[in-house]
Write a protein that binds this DNA or RNA. Sequence first.
DNA 1: ATAGAACCCCAAGCATGGTTGAGGTCAATG
DNA 2: CATTGACCTCAACCATGCTTGGGGTTCTAT
Lengths: 154, 154
Amino acid sequence: MAQKTKSAALPRELTVGDVARRAGVRVSTLHYYESKGLITSGRNGGNQRRYPRAVLRRVAVIRIAQRAGLSLSEIRQALESLPDGRQPNRRDWRRLSSAWRQSLQDRIENLVKLRDQLESCMGCGCVCFRDCPLHAPDDALPAPGRLAGEHGPG
Amino acid sequence: MAQKTKSAALPRELTVGDVARRAGVRVSTLHYYESKGLITSGRNGGNQRRYPRAVLRRVAVIRIAQRAGLSLSEIRQALESLPDGRQPNRRDWRRLSSAWRQSLQDRIENLVKLRDQLESCMGCGCVCFRDCPLHAPDDALPAPGRLAGEHGPG
DNA sequence: ATAGAACCCCAAGCATGGTTGAGGTCAATG
DNA sequence: CATTGACCTCAACCATGCTTGGGGTTCTAT
């Protein structure tokens, strides 16, 4: 027996159930991430997934990146930039996080701009939104199926 | 003839095409908004939609709210709080914008927190994300089909 | 009067991010 | 050895926010 459902002492390999429980996601989500190339798994004799403990960090990082507003495909691309053979180290993660921090920063700046103009602009009596600083025709709307009031797309 | 495709002088009523052009959205989007109860339209003798000019502001407001991270159903609810008979005035819009500003503010604060913890946390060597301030198990992920890197369920 | 643009409605389709369920296998326990 | 829970795959489904297309009508210009 490798590990129990009720976590035994420091098992070497994790089952999907283990990972799901520890990472706080559903098994179906892990399957989904795998299908999208965000994580990978080994298989045991009976074709069941077995994960190294490092997958926990990986999943955590994926979730964090989602909260930062990245799509799964963006996250996948970023993760692909991690070293191939060896385990990612501190430096590797730090590199990723810097890039993400920047895009997060941009997002924040946009929202702050919006916030600061919101009241004056919606409160004003102007007829013509075309001249309004908030009227951004080609501008980025939330991508369908994403972000949220940091709420939770469904 | 009420108005031309190429805007004549201050037409009283707008066609869908007019609204689409002026508001910078597709006709299909206006149909969609109507189907979701975000806007309404009158009809002419031939069953074609006719809009008062006020719809322009309404659409603009919808777009702004989307950028602020609200879902269409949240926006619809907010718009329903507008006065029924008369045109919304400055005060009405201001009330809406205040509420939205607050939710936008919350969103921003969350993202800032995330940003400030991102580097230290992803860069750190900790094994256990469960103890990490970035590990927010039940926490709000972007709602599927929404927001985006201010990009696009979502 | 007639062509062509613009409009109508409806159903289906797309993308994202998952979840659910059916039908069947594997593994740990008594 | 049998049960039971965990796992497997695959297809279908859900929600959001639209877009596309088909078949038919109405407008506007000439």
